[in-house]
Nucleic acid binder design. Sequence first.
DNA 1: CATCTATTTTTGTGATCACAAAAACTTGCT
DNA 2: AGCAAGTTTTTGTGATCACAAAAATAGATG
Lengths: 236, 236
Amino acid sequence: MDKKSPIRITLTTRDETVTITQWVYSTLRHAVMNGQILPGRALTIRELASILDVSPMPVREALRQLAAENALEIQGNRRVMVPRMTAMKFNELCEARITLESHAAARALPYIDKERLQLLIALDKEIDQAHDEGDLEQITVRNQRFHRTLYTSNPHQITLPLIESLWLQLGPFMRLANSKLEEHYTIDRHNEALQAIERKDALALQIAITADIREGFAFAGTPELLHSFIEESASA
Amino acid sequence: MDKKSPIRITLTTRDETVTITQWVYSTLRHAVMNGQILPGRALTIRELASILDVSPMPVREALRQLAAENALEIQGNRRVMVPRMTAMKFNELCEARITLESHAAARALPYIDKERLQLLIALDKEIDQAHDEGDLEQITVRNQRFHRTLYTSNPHQITLPLIESLWLQLGPFMRLANSKLEEHYTIDRHNEALQAIERKDALALQIAITADIREGFAFAGTPELLHSFIEESASA
DNA sequence: CATCTATTTTTGTGATCACAAAAACTTGCT
DNA sequence: AGCAAGTTTTTGTGATCACAAAAATAGATG
């Protein structure tokens, strides 16, 4: 049944209030974001349907949606796969993140009141906690929650879907970033960001966000390291 | 059959090499981009299927894809519509365009050789031509082609899908922008951009792109005008 | 006339089927 | 063994059906 590498997807019990398509979507999204499906691996509707124990229809819709978000790639053959990564593309994705996210942060700043700042401080504490416990998965989740909460402070914000698309594309590699992060013992720049928010200093906030993102991928700054794990996913 | 306002969609003959879903997708995309479907109007799968004379299936897939690109909005009711616009959201979309597109332009600059520059110059001439002929539709089309060609000069570029998502969200209102543009006789900033490219001056290029985008929506700078045509689309 | 309730219709979701195209596999030849 | 042609299987696409939920309509009641 499994010709190539067997796909191992974490299954969560489905909330009954949610459509099957939505459940399949978030399941596959999570799998992509955590690098559970290696780039280049051909995904077929029926195979995924059988793994998730649903009919092909919801899988079809979820795949199309993920492809529209650039999380998956539809080849000319109409075949779907996780896009392969290149060093140049990786770099472009990081730079795009920096540009978009510092923009979103600056535009959110005027809307952050005292209680929202307290919320952000609390979320930052939770990241440190996950860090202490060495829970890599939770570090990623809570880090994303921190950024998402910051940007959505702006009630008219429209960039989050674009930012999440970038996260999805970097997803499989964020995971590795965090695993290396253990060694490097990187301290994030969230404190700097929080102080900038308190001072209502937009420029300082942008600088902090930029540094936070850049240092998060600092491990990839050494070309050999970057290359090594891009090659790792080059298996057809 | 048509309870609300009748939907008028420009139909193109379908290329046989392309799937029905793809044809439906680009047809609907074009309709949204040109404001042929007014915001707030509820779209049903079967109605569109009958208008386009296809089975419900391709429409279903196309709608989901457009929703994933933020061109359409799925409400809690599972009902699909073109999102309504607000003045604040309009402003956010413009600012996001400026940030993303000047980023994309700067990152493309190193890859623009002499012949690509010539191509851009030719495309710019075509815009002037459409301008002389007073063809509003072609002005928009060719203007987008100019920008797209500029950004895709970077072979590793990954921001175009995000930029196109913003174009789609502004789509219904770009049309009005251009209609007002007739009166204002706006001169675009493409010449400035082209000169900056020739000098390999990234900052000047970003300034030109920023001005080009901002002036394209300058008409909306007067709050009463902006408000007037946003209200225009407020009909449920 | 307005407002709530019951009934009918419409709609999205998901399942299943048919079919042509693409892969994968088998076979035969050098 | 290496490779090309033919065969079988698998796959995405699109059509159609069933069903529960939502919306529209009709009716009744104040």
